[in-house]
């Protein structure tokens, strides 16, 4: 089953707003919490209280500095999890069929009981979205919270990924990117949502909304300057202006 489906009924995925993400890591830990307790093996940690702690995470938040040709450097927080690619190389390389892309919603999953932990899928993923759990020896990846989004034991509002539900800034959006009328698709259209490494040909479903232009305020001074025309040059004149203005009330 490591062949990719010809097409999927829906393209469920995330839209991440780089203009809004404050880099708080809430999504990272919420994801760790949910996925440790739910689908598949727990996300383990090695040397948890020691010199070299490391563990399995399905979502991580990077940060980058961008130095424009002119003006101040900018800092951009950058969450990254599986992008549930349409042409997911991680699926086709998998020798066991453990990795597959679901026909109904396009979610890329690992069937842990088949996985041999060869790591090849992680090698093939350009985005670093897969991590081999050191305790369980199987490949872990973002499940798009497949055990939440249809879960009838959860109230309907909560049938969204854990990371989306928790994001305090509302920088993460979830929906069907295959449906041009969905909120997420509209957001992508409005804000010029982009693909990561389009040249890899993976056709990611997840999209990123680029940061809005920054540090523009001084350029607007021409429009703004009239607002600052002095009412008086001297304190005395100011009191005169005050009297006149108060009369109008």
């Amino acid at each position: 089953m490591t062949q990719l489906p010809q097409s999927t009924d829906r393209k469920m995925g995330l839209v991440i707003d780089l203009d809004t993400c404050v880099g708080c890591h809430a999504c990272v830990i919420s994801c760790k919490g949910w996925n440790t307790e739910n689908y598949g093996a727990p996300l383990s940690d090695q040397d948890a209280y020691g010199a070299d702690p490391s563990g399995t995470f399905l979502n991580r938040v990077h940060s980058y500095e961008v130095q424009p040709a002119e003006g101040h450097a900018q800092l951009i927080h950058f969450p990254k999890s599986c992008l549930h690619c349409e042409d997911a190389p991680c699926v086709t390389v998998c020798p066991t069929g453990a990795s597959y892309k679901r026909v109904e919603d396009g979610i890329v999953l690992v069937n842990e009981s088949d996985c041999i932990g060869c790591g090849l899928c992680a090698w093939s993923c350009p985005y670093g979205a897969r991590e081999l759990d050191q305790a369980e020896g199987v490949m872990k990846k973002c499940t798009l919270c497949v055990d939440r989004i249809y879960n009838e034991n959860l109230p309907e509002v909560d049938r969204v990924p854990s990371c989306v539900r928790t994001c305090p800034a509302g920088a993460r959006h979830f929906g069907d990117l295959g449906d041009p009328d969905s909120d997420v698709s509209k957001l992508v259209a409005e804000r010029d949502g982009m693909d990561l490494m389009p040249e890899m040909g993976t056709k990611p479903v997840n999209k990123y909304l680029p940061p809005r232009p920054k540090d523009q305020i001084e350029d607007q001074i021409d429009i703004l300057a009239p607002l600052l025309a002095p009412v008086a040059e001297e304190p005395g004149g100011f009191i005169g202006w005050l009297d006149k203005t108060l009369e109008k009330f």
Partner: peptide, 11 residues
Amino acid sequence: RSGYNAIADDW
């Protein structure tokens, strides 16, 4: 310019 200030339109 980190965190909240990173997403500020003007820093």
